[in-house]
């Protein structure tokens, strides 16, 4: 499908342009009103009327914009991987309970530390431990879902199991919340609203490295993902080793969804909706095209959502989770009504 790849070149250039535009839009808006001209000069190290503007742009807005790119692209990519692996158009980190798993990990760490005082003693409550806890939580859920998927061929059952995981997690989280003090609870609730801000450059580099590994593993899975489009038996008959490929795809998904959820909170709908949106523009199932396209799309959508969440020129910031749901849910409904069927 190389000829096809060429015909999609234009679309990719377009996507890159839109990405740059939304990136700039994102960093030029925020609670402090900085004129576009000053934003430009701050970017290229020029003169800015007020010194703090430069600081805001370089240490707050730019890391936030890059986080949005990583979060949106990574979540969308993990959604694509799962839709193909589970042969289900409704799969995504949220629906399959993977975000719930990450929440559970985060909750156990943030809220459970009062119960397991050992953590607090060792001063484990830093970002690395949060990432590890959330990633472990999402891996655990992914593995269980995978085990169930091997036994239950019915994809509907899988989704119900994912929903059940969501309920179990929120139940455990409420139990933990009941026993934890106000400060810890507040920290967890703010985490669960989702946010792409508040990441330092160091944290951003850590997130970027994990997402990069996830993307790399996804790229290595492209051929296998294409084979999975026929179903597992067909994939096997094409020489794909099922166990190895499944594991590879699961690790990629777990790294992406787990690390992103750890840093940015459980962000809804991006993983589910973006792959479907991408298939509207890129009329192909070839993962060589879809993997990069979905990443671009997710990044652009997340930048836009974050720009909206900033409520430009006002001091308040909306939880990003609300924005992605407000945009994502209607998109899924619209796709369903228009096509009468969600195909993947």
């Amino acid at each position: 499908m190389q000829s096809k790849a060429k015909s999609y070149q234009f679309s990719f250039i377009l996507l890159l342009g839109v990405l740059l535009f939304t990136w700039f839009l994102n960093i030029s808006s925020g609670s402090v009103n900085i004129p576009i001209k000053s934003t430009f000069s701050a970017l290229f190290n020029g003169e800015v009327p007020i010194d703090s503007w430069k600081y805001i742009i370089w240490n707050y807005r730019i890391p936030k914009a890059f986080t949005a790119i990583l979060v949106g692209g990574g979540l969308a990519l993990s959604g694509l991987l799962m839709q193909t692996l589970f042969r289900n158009p409704l799969a995504g980190p949220f629906v399959l309970g993977i975000s719930s798993g990450a929440s559970l990990g985060a909750a156990l760490l943030l809220l459970g530390s009062s119960l397991l005082s050992g953590f607090a003693v060792f001063g484990f409550l830093n970002d690395v431990s949060l990432v590890i806890a959330a990633s472990l939580g999402s891996f655990l859920v992914l593995l269980i879902v995978m085990l169930v998927a091997n036994r239950v061929r019915d994809t509907m059952a899988l989704l119900i199991i994912g929903l059940m995981f969501g309920s179990v997690t929120s139940a455990i989280v409420s139990v933990l919340a009941y026993f934890s003090d106000a400060e810890q609870l507040q920290r967890f609730i703010f985490w669960s609203y989702g946010s792409v801000g508040n990441l330092s450059w160091n944290q951003l580099i850590l997130l970027a490295s994990i997402v990069f590994i996830g993307v790399l593993l996804s790229v290595f899975s492209i051929k296998k993902l294409n084979a999975f489009l026929l179903g597992e038996n067909y994939a096997q008959s094409l020489g794909v080793s099922l166990k190895k490929s499944r594991l590879l795809i699961i690790i990629a998904t777990g790294l992406l969804a787990g690390s992103i959820t750890a840093f940015a909170g459980p962000i809804a709908f991006v993983g589910l909706a973006v792959p479907h949106l991408t298939r509207q523009l890129f009329n192909t199932m070839e993962h060589k095209i879809l993997v990069p396209a979905v990443f671009f799309y997710g990044a652009i959508l997340m930048l836009l959502c974050d720009t909206i969440a900033q409520l430009p020129n006002s001091a308040s910031v909306l939880p990003i989770n609300a924005i992605t749901s407000l945009i994502g849910a209607p998109v899924v409904i619209w796709l369903l009504v228009r096509k009468r069927k969600l195909l993947f």
């Binding site: 499908m1 193909t84 042969r87 290595f220 492209i222 051929k223 294409n226 084979a227 999975f228 489009l229 026929l230 179903g231 597992e232 038996n233 067909y234 094409l238 020489g239 794909v240 298939r279 192909t284 199932m285 070839e286 060589k288 195909l343 993947f344």
Partner: peptide, 26 residues
């Protein structure tokens, strides 16, 4: 068994038959 993704085009589906011979990227 039905193929998992009916959204594949005929050409894409037939192309998948070449997987055993193509490189890591297909």
């Amino acid at each position: 068994e039905p193929i998992a993704s009916k959204n594949l085009t005929v050409k894409e589906l037939i192309t998948l038959g070449r997987q055993p011979y193509t490189n890591w990227l297909g």
